[in-house]
Design a binder for these strands. Sequence first.
DNA 1: TCTGGGGTCCTAGGACCC
DNA 2: TCTGGGGTCCTAGGACCC
Length: 417
Amino acid sequence: MPFALVDCNNFYVSCEKVFNPGLEGKPVVVLSNNDGCIIARSNEAKALGIKMGEPFFRCREIIQRYNVRVYSSNFSLYGDMSARVMETLGLLCPDMEIYSIDEAFLSLDKGIPDPIAWGMGVRKTVLKWTGVPVSIGIGPTKTLAKVAAHVAKAMPEGVVYTGADADAVLKDVDVADVWGIGVKYARKLKAMGIRTALELKDLPDNWIKRHMRSTGLRTVMELKGIACIQLGDVAFTKKSVMCSRSFGRDVHDLGELEEAVAAYASRAAEKIRAQGSAASCIQIFLASGSLRETGHGIVSSSVELPEATSYTPEIIRMVKLMVGRLYRSGTVYKKAGVILSGLVDRGKVQKSLFCPSRETPASQRLMETMDSLNQRWGRGTITFAAGGIERPWKMRQARRSPRFTTSWDELPLARAN
DNA sequence: TCTGGGGTCCTAGGACCC
DNA sequence: TCTGGGGTCCTAGGACCC
């Protein structure tokens, strides 16, 4: 049963191009939240040497010199475009796992006569229906499909197929580009002279097991064509949910800090309700000082609840208590976050013997009403005042394109002559 | 001046039990 | 004088992914 990996090309940039065809052929980049670093590049921007993850301010010069178009990230748009791509793929092949915002694994029929022709058909349909170009890799394991998709990106036809014997493909693939090999392992392998995916594949199993654990061994087996990773569950329920942001400007004031954390808490609560969960543990963290000194200036606190909840006012009440305990006057805060974990099915919450339940039928109706209003009219239509109105701390997004597909006020305009 | 946000899995080692 | 062996559970940290 071969796997196909469908990967959207330069996804965020491609989304911007759909609504702004004038960007075609131009260097374009998309920035991370808070306009911090580069997280997507058009081919033209890649050719200029702009690196993935590079801080924006460090490539200012090159951006000005070559008139690179710069966009703040617009996740409302990208999320909606992703849903369209995934819906299209689901129609073409129902046996699908949505792997990330811009990638999906498909499980193909064993007897598929011409995988390349099939892939080219998928590519054409997705492009026509959504405007998003994709690359497709097909192989006997997920890891080989990923490798094939990586190679396909550089091919004009955009589709690569490999059988179990993939040596001819693997010999030209950098070991760092193998799915499962991150920066640390890549550095270690290269220091030992292992440079390509093929050389990795041919290392002895016991060496891999010793130095790269069971996950590394699994990767190597998969390169050999032995499938170890099955298609995942599409209706995937997260085990923890986080909402965190860097602030658009420094925060000193307790009131502002409480506001920001309450806003993140309320977003996190929305997310767990959307997957039908309640949280039994709430954790917050506050980051101060320079973010470069990772690990420094981060304080955190967590609380186990007597009874799991998804009721926003209760979660806000708890996080405000925690912020109050962690806050130190005189500290400059840069970032904060809320993590909800110990997620359980909301219908199966264990009641506490000692505490009155916060999840009354009325509170549940209130949350359902809020969620449906926000879903119908857009996120943030109704919010808790505890999360702030002015929000002076909110992240920078100076160059965001309109939310063309998810906000009535921002629909694209078309003129007919 | 300025470096994102949101996840998962695995393992080693400590605490604790009998 | 002499001080075992075998478990489980939890947590922190490290690795990975996009």
